[in-house]
């Protein structure tokens, strides 16, 4: 068992315990993965009433000047507990929160950071503004009381891709797209840690509500070229090599090919819901749920393209 695997086991145990206590406590435990660099690992599950939406990885970097936070979690409560957890590690002020992309599990903790600069890519800000409330509503439904008091806080600062020197850390802000219309990755060149956000999933089936599979696959190629030591995926455990990139890519390729071929063969959406997938794909966490969701997201467009190949005469 590598040290990393060990900490994730501990985190998971912590989870169960906190649930058993019945307290609304995410049991957030920052794990030191590199100098000054901490992550908080979420469960490899779908949102539910037990995990309170904590299925996401967040993180922070304690620089000499202050703390940089990456994503705020799925609820106000998470955000507050994240701040408290940071406070237990360092007394340094929090300088800034980055939202990597618009999805609710990454941004609904923003409330706890409301007075601070919250930065995101321009398209992400538009997306949160337009769809944030919708996300918030559905999170209340999926995670229940954990969401109490949560409202959408729109980022206040637009991220320009490029380098940022802060308190002895050189951060490279990388704008990607594919998982959503704008995905921010942060590479700490000082420590070699890449916060890959939801561009990379590890051991868990990628989600696709705003995905463009072609763009995503292209982006993964570019991502693999980056020079990093440790990769923090948006979901799943932290890894040292490019395995998680490969895994994400394999899944997306399979999904893309499967849906296209199913559409080419005239399968209905309901039929496609029962997939024929190789074990390496089927074995990913929450495969069944995420695959079915992906069919809903992606199949209508793919299917329409296939139907357009047909010959139709209309007056």
């Amino acid at each position: 068992m590598t040290p990393l695997q060990r900490v994730s086991v501990i985190a998971f145990w912590f989870f169960i315990v906190s649930y058993a206590w019945g307290a609304r406590d995410y049991g957030l435990k920052p794990l030191l993965i590199a100098p000054d660099t901490y992550v908080l690992l979420g469960a490899n599950e779908h949102f539910n009433f037990r995990n309170g939406g904590n299925i996401v990885n967040t993180g922070f970097i304690v620089t000499d000047e202050g703390v940089i936070v990456i994503d705020s979690g799925p609820s106000r409560l998470y955000g507050e507990q994240l701040r408290a957890a940071i406070g237990r590690i360092t007394e340094r002020p929090i300088l800034k929160l980055f939202n990597t992309h618009l999805h609710p599990d990454h941004i609904l903790g923003n409330q706890a950071f409301e007075k601070l600069p919250i930065a995101a890519l321009a398209t992400t800000i538009d997306g949160i503004r337009e769809q944030g409330e919708l996300f918030n509503d559905s999170m209340y439904r999926l995670a229940g009381a954990w969401m109490a008091g949560t409202r959408v806080v729109v980022p206040t600062e637009t991220v320009r891709p490029g380098s940022l020197e802060i308190g002895g850390h050189r951060l490279q802000l990388i704008a990607m797209k594919g998982h959503s219309h704008a995905d921010l990755m942060i590479l700490d060149q000082t420590t070699g840690v890449l916060f890959a956000a939801d561009m990379v999933f590890h051991g868990r089936t990628p989600t696709t509500p705003h995905a463009d599979l072609g763009q995503w696959l292209d982006a993964l190629d570019a991502l693999a070229e980056l020079d990093f030591k440790l990769l923090v995926p948006g979901h799943g455990s932290v890894v040292e090599d490019r395995r998680s990139i490969e895994q994400t890519r394999d899944y997306l390729r399979w999904l893309n090919a499967y849906l296209h071929e199913a559409a080419e063969q005239g399968m209905t959406m309901a039929e496609v819901l029962q997939p024929d997938a190789p074990p390496s794909i089927r074995g990913l966490a929450v495969f069944k749920e995420e695959y079915q969701r992906s069919v809903t997201h992606l199949y209508p467009a793919i299917e329409a393209r296939a139907l357009r190949q047909g010959r139709v005469v209309q007056e």
Binding site: T268, A270, L273, Q292, T296, P300
Partner: peptide, 16 residues
């Protein structure tokens, strides 16, 4: 009757 157990998009639930 094929349909998803959980409707991701309640405006578009596929059925066969």
């Amino acid at each position: 009757v094929l349909a998803p157990g959980d409707a991701e998009d309640s405006m578009n639930v596929p059925v066969l």
